[in-house]
């Protein structure tokens, strides 16, 4: 496959050429399918392989705040986790864009950190300057059962 001198101009011989062609076709299908999954999804918060160039989450017409609260002993209002003291700033940034995997991993970490915690709740509230509707996301993890409920709406 690595052409070398002096026969440097030659294409690969028949069978190898066919194998390469198959590989190329499969690779192209994969390259088109991966970003396409993002564009066909309703949840567009994972832009990693979408080839957007300009992120719709980072360059968004709204600003988002996030908070995480731990609920124990049937409390109605949870105890707020000090994210600034707990996480590196870069992770808070990823929570602000609502990356599901990061949110879920952090909630699980909080559940494990204290056996008295019954549930951990993440909320992401976004606001537009023109007061038009903006995304609001709430994710709650029940520590004992591991059940996750996600609620997303425009507010």
């Amino acid at each position: 496959m690595v052409a070398r001198c002096p026969d440097i101009a030659s294409p690969p011989p028949g069978l190898l050429r066919r194998l390469i062609s198959l590989g190329v076709a499969a690779y192209l299908i994969w390259q088109i399918a991966v970003p396409l999954r993002y564009y066909l999804r309703e949840n567009r918060r994972d832009e990693r392989f979408a080839w957007r160039i300009f992120s719709a989450l980072v360059i968004a017409p709204y600003r988002c705040d996030v908070r995480v609260a731990e609920v124990s002993h049937g409390e109605q209002l949870g105890r707020e986790v000090n994210l600034e003291r707990t996480l590196h700033d870069a992770w808070i940034g990823l929570l602000k864009v609502g990356q599901d995997a990061v949110v879920k991993r952090f909630l699980r970490l909080r559940c494990r950190s204290d056996p008295l915690v019954d549930a951990v709740e993440f909320s992401r509230t976004c606001r537009r300057e023109d007061r038009a509707p903006a995304p609001h996301l709430r994710v709650r993890l029940e520590c004992r059962s591991g059940d996750i409920t996600t609620h997303e709406e425009m507010q």
Partner: peptide
């Protein structure tokens, strides 16, 4: 000098895919 270089052509196709999807996002209202 000329050489047969399918992997080089594949890079071109890959970059074309990148720009195509980038152009698709430009149809969004934002």
């Amino acid at each position: 000098r000329r050489i047969s270089a399918w992997a080089y052509v594949l890079v071109a196709a890959n970059v074309a895919i990148v720009y195509t999807f980038a152009a698709v996002t430009k149809t969004e209202a934002g």
